[in-house]
Nucleic acid binder design. Structure first.
Lengths: 360, 360
DNA sequence: AGAACCTTCTGTATCGATACAGTACGTCGG
DNA sequence: CCGACGTACTGTATCGATACAGAAGGTTCT
């Protein structure tokens, strides 16, 4: 039989409470007794209090649930996500808390089971669409939650760490129109969506106000803000959906902006990863970024620097770290649970003045 | 007060057991009663049986602990690791099990606490050095364990999924010597080690039989096997330590092979990531891989293909998947718990015949 | 009709710990 | 010499569920 606290207690003729204290409250017993208990435990192959029982009694499990939609590997593949998770892990680790990666399967019932069964002290909703059926269940669990997308999505009880997506995108848009670009394409991921995948990559006609996925939607709206302010009507912009947030999909999307007579002189992307794909597409076509076509990204992932990508830098690791801290020590004051972090425009070599002959 | 099973039971005047059955054993009660129970639960904001209490009673927590040393972000940064974790996550997810990422801090006492407190059904020892003090504690937890490094490190009770590292490396070595290379450098990570970091990047003189870190050690020994068989003495090989397994460190290590009069004509690396760094270093120096200098990697990560890197392909995702399956349904027969997967040599463009003038 | 059986629910013991109040036994100031 | 206090330990209730034996009631078979 597996050893328990009682086993050790019986062995030494002390009470179970005392053995428990030897592990959890060393100040409650004499050092000598504690030493005897620990050595007896070692002898009997007892590896310390059972974590589950301890959690049940104490009400803490020392884990943060990270909800990931569908494809868990995305969390590992997207450099921005990696940075965010690293920050989250740092904050958690500092409090001896671990991350429980929760993969939400497509099947809704299974997803509900995953959430209800997760032994966690808090949830980090990461890349979970605002309308996902899981949200309600997460709320009913009654544990702290931090979100990074639509600040309104979860009511005031949730913490929020994010950036002003729309204003940030607007700065990119302004940078582009200030460079004289008027023939503009926007590559955005997941703006059409069948509820499961991001749809097909290709040009779409959509009202930015209707986009369902918050982050992308805000970024596209931010671009539009800049365009309208500069007198570029939205109808003139070529909007391209990318089926996912991967480099290949950026390259594929770029084809729809580049392989046409009225080729765009600027391509704005909703993420750096997509933008890197666009740069790949330019290279294949013998076009030079920043001269023939200007390209922008979003996030400032590590690869962006090497590629010379103009982008918006957001504090990714910091964002994750703050999310973790908000979850583990939620401030009383609801105002302090809502953090909007600063961003900056990073101009590199993939953007430059419009050199194309101006259309009528 | 938070709702429990009893709350619902009292509300409807049924027994607690029945409410429990409504969730866990629907066949044990009439559909109508079950429906009443579930709707009462919804009304009272009850989100289902408490996972911790359930785990305590049933002895299962539906989580696999993934032990990561020190820097958790490495797990996300190294493409091979990402693939492995993805496979593991797939296997886990298929059984509604999640991954608990356990970050082992430098501080040993804290590390012990992390392991003892982890509520998991099994441990996956991933990138944990064989001599790490945590291993003993993991063993004493008495749960299934899978390892991916030294098959001998954990005794026969552990499962093992790996490859024949040494034989695989030997094939790379043979490929290189068959191409006529005799001035060879080996870039290996973590072959010197102060117990914490991987030491300083630079040339070292070491007996391959003394290398502490299993995977790297086996690969280096495999290279040596090929060299010796071809009559290249080990003393002739330039062995370079990389302080870590990152591209930059590969590039830095390459300097020690390239910036010298007796420049190596072939550089063998213990990982693709390092090899990509070596290719970067070649490019900077205006050297062409496969013509001026041959370069090999190990793992066949996705980026290797694009780079034309000659390497050993190992089934990374599959390896993780099998590890997960072994953990969740450990076969009775110990033999079936030890899997050695096949690998293949993938020859691409970074290797070619030795064109340098033969030394005396 | 009576035994055997199924379905549907109940009741109690238990999983392995922690919380907290309580006891026993010094020690110390006045 | 006595009450106040601190230290070291004990005992019981409890955390929130599941397991399993059993009871009540209706059916089926012979």
């Amino acid at each position: 039989m597996k050893a328990t606290l009682q086993t050790i207690a019986d062995e030494l003729g002390v009470s179970r409470s005392t053995v428990s204290n030897a592990y959890s409250r060393p100040d409650q017993l004499s050092p000598e007794l504690r030493a005897r208990i620990l050595s007896a435990a070692q002898r009997l192959g007892y590896s310390g209090p059972n974590p589950t029982a301890r959690s049940l009694r104490s009400g803490k499990v020392n884990a943060i649930g990270v909800l990931l939609t569908d494809n868990l590997s995305m969390a590992f593949t997207d450099p921005y996500a990696v940075a965010y998770l690293r920050g989250l892990a740092e904050a958690a680790s500092a409090r001896e808390t671990s991350l429980l990666l929760l993969n939400l399967p497509k099947d809704e019932a299974a997803g509900r089971r995953v959430i209800s069964n997760a032994a966690v002290d808090a949830f980090c909703l990461y890349c979970v669409p605002d309308w996902h059926s899981a949200l309600e269940l997460v709320r009913s669990r009654g544990v702290p939650v931090v979100i990074g997308e639509d600040p309104q999505a979860f009511g005031p009880e949730a913490s929020y760490v994010g950036i002003d997506e729309r204003a940030a995108a607007r700065r990119l848009g302004e940078h582009i129109v200030n460079l004289g670009h008027r023939d503009i394409a926007v590559v955005a991921h997941w703006i059409v969506d069948d509820g499961v995948s991001g749809g097909r990559t290709g040009q779409v006609h959509a009202d930015p106000d209707d986009l369902r996925y918050y982050v992308t939607g805000e970024r596209v709206r931010g671009f539009r803000d800049a365009f309208l302010a500069a007198g570029v009507p939205w109808e003139r912009v070529v909007l391209i959906n990318a089926a996912g947030n991967q480099r290949e999909e950026g390259a594929e999307a770029a084809a729809h902006a580049l392989d046409r007579l009225d080729r765009a002189t600027a391509v704005l992307c909703t993420s750096d990863v997509l933008a890197l794909g666009v740069l790949d597409a330019l290279r294949v076509r013998g076009l030079q970024a920043g001269r023939d076509v200007s390209v922008t990204g979003f996030d400032d992932i590590p690869e962006a620097d090497a590629a010379g990508l103009t982008t918006i830098r957001q504090p990714s690791v910091e964002r994750g770290r703050l999310a973790g801290e908000l979850l583990l020590d939620p401030p009383e004051d609801p105002v302090l649970r809502r953090l909007t972090l600063p961003v900056s425009l990073v101009v590199r070599s993939t953007t430059g003045p419009n050199t194309a002959k101006e259309k009528s």
